[in-house]
Design a protein around this nucleic acid. Structure first.
Lengths: 353, 353
DNA sequence: TCGCTTCGCTAAACCGGTTCACTAAATCGG
DNA sequence: CCGATTTAGTGAACCGGTTTAGCGAAGCGA
């Protein structure tokens, strides 16, 4: 007693396979009585159309993939991702399209993409030059890339990283900070400092420009990098605390900033008096911690929504649409985690050792 | 110039379709030279095996679904979900299995399941009696159900909700709390109080039992319900603050508890002196807020891991395995958000109005 | 040298649906 | 009452692969 197939239902109802297909997909093309008879036969047999077969024949998987550069475990350590997915879901849920996360398979993003059961992809955290992704261009699969300067054959949704970071840096400069730790994004724990992800590079440029514009071009930036997670933030604090602690720390994500704050608090510091901390993203948790996190707000859910919209449009239009680049606004949300820079003698290293 | 198919590659390489299939899937069955020739032909043509066709023929989608009772937008408002997915991902990533979230389609979970492109399902937040899900039993699709008493034809991974809630209630009772708000889970904003989700019901029983066991059987429980989100927690606080504020609030999730805390702080209360708050789950954010949230810890990632393990086992064994029920331990993580109950006159309602 | 196994590859069936081209019967306008 | 549509349904081709059964040639032990 194998799973009943469409032919079994057709036979039992005394009609063709086509009629059965119609009964499920285009009932209006069928006489009411015939349809009832077919559905009854299907019910008796416990028939359920095979989703895969249906998708093969219709050439639509009804799924879109969200390609991420790290394992599910690592990438979901950042509350940014759930927020992004909420936005994507707003659009996809309404259309009955499923969202599947596509992490690397055995370290290979290209392999993961090859095997993904999707009609299109949203790319997160990938750079255009990525060697593994050349074939993706040729595949003709609709793609929307997030947070890149440009992506061949794809629409792009981005934010102005430089401006966002610059605003944050200016804020710190105006508070008198001249010795600032900067925590970049480490994809792998041992990424060399000079070849960083485009996002890190752009924001770093923005930071430099912000200090310069505020007449603090001589400010010291102590650059480290860490995985994007609370633990990563803690590790970054430890690294920065090995020398004389800077008066402020800027991060590329709120979860990292929260890790820095937690490590600082554990070390006995008072925030923000002893250390100012700036995040990036403005995830919900940024407003839950104490002190409330000063951070560069970006419209994460809107970004997801827009990405899904553009992708679905590209899928439905058969790749005909022009590729656009849309830049969403950021703004600095000044909250409680930033204050005037302490004078260095206020905090002897002994205190945090 | 349509997408090249396996036949095109076969023709170009002068071999059969079977040989091409072998070249990609079982290279060892082929002479090295032949294989090279086939792969070269594929490369020249830009051929990439169709994932859907491949999945249809092999009768494996290489995907598992996580069925959730609410929209992507709503369900991802709870940090519990990302943590669960991290656990599921630990297992699935390693096996090249993709995880797809399956929210209701037009409000129907049954429809969503019918159309899901999966080899098996993990069920979250569903109750066994769910009328829509009867056909799921018959479909023969491997299933693992989370947090239910029992599920026909499925393995179950659960925690001891009663014991967890009881421990939390005892803790509050010992701190002198006799007037306690309880925030249950509202699936829909207007769920009647008497027909709650099994999880809510079990935990409520545990709470009652905890107060009774501590000799505080006379404690007043003010029961409200709210969506599981920070906003839901805030709404619950507002509802509870309409009368005389209880001395403590127990919730079914940390995110709700955080909402309660935030609303209380916004109202000018001091925590935990004016109000004790207890969460459930112990998501990472519970340890980031101030005061640190006292909460019932459950091993969320482990739950996800175990669910994925059992599901994949069921898939691979052809449904042959016996169905088990595994109960994971909980423990009360006492942190800073609970303290001795205030005396009621300490907090005139005017103060929070 | 003979029979048996292994190697390398193929033809055909199969996975389970959708869709195109077409027909017979019923309906309709004039 | 006639030709033109519409309705209801069919058969065959198709989506794009995998897999089973088997075949000829080469290798091997006796």
């Amino acid at each position: 007693m194998a799973r009943p197939r469409i032919g079994d239902v057709a036979e039992r109802a005394g009609v063709s396979k086509t009629a059965v297909s119609f009964a499920f997909n285009q009932p209006e093309h069928l006489n009411t009585m015939t349809r009832e008879r077919i559905l009854a036969a299907a019910e008796e047999l416990g028939y359920r159309p095979s989703p895969i077969a249906r998708r093969l024949a219709s050439r639509r998987t009804q799924q879109v993939g969200l390609v991420v550069p790290q394992s599910t475990h690592d990438i979901f350590a950042n509350p940014f991702l759930p927020e992004l997915i909420r936005g994507i879901g707003d659009v996809c849920d309404a259309q009955g399209i499923a969202v599947v996360v596509v992490p690397p398979v055995h370290g290979s993003i290209a392999t993961a993409i090859k095997e993904a059961l999707v009609d299109g992809l949203i790319l997160l955290g990938l750079e255009s030059g990525h060697p593994e992704l050349a074939q993706l261009q040729r595949s003709g699969l609709p793609v929307v890339a997030l947070d890149v300067e440009h992506w061949d054959g794809a629409s792009v949704i981005a934010i102005d990283d430089v401006a966002g970071a610059r605003e944050a840096a200016t804020h710190l400069a105006e508070l008198g900070h001249r010795d600032v730790g900067v925590v970049l994004i480490a994809q792998h724990p041992d990424t060399p400092l000079d070849e960083h992800h485009g996002v890190s590079a752009r924001r770093l440029a923005g930071i430099r420009s912000g200090f310069a514009a505020a007449g603090a071009g001589d400010a010291t930036l102590r650059i480290v990098s860490a995985p994007v997670s609370e633990e990563g933030g803690r590790a970054a604090f430890e690294a920065l605390a090995e020398g004389l602690l800077p008066t402020a720390v800027m991060t590329m994500s709120d979860v990292t900033a929260i890790g820095v704050m937690n490590a600082a608090l554990d070390a006995g510091l008072t925030l923000p008096a002893d250390l100012s901390v700036v995040g990036f993203d403005d995830v919900p948790a940024a407003a839950w911690v104490t002190p409330r996190l000063t951070t560069v707000h970006q419209p994460i859910r809107e970004k997801g929504r827009l990405a899904a919209l553009r992708l679905i449009d590209a899928i439905q239009s058969g790749e005909g649409r022009a590729h656009t680049r849309e830049v969403l606004p950021t703004r600095l949300a000044v909250r409680g985690s930033t204050a005037r820079a302490r004078t260095n003698d206020h905090l002897p290293m002994a205190e945090i050792a």
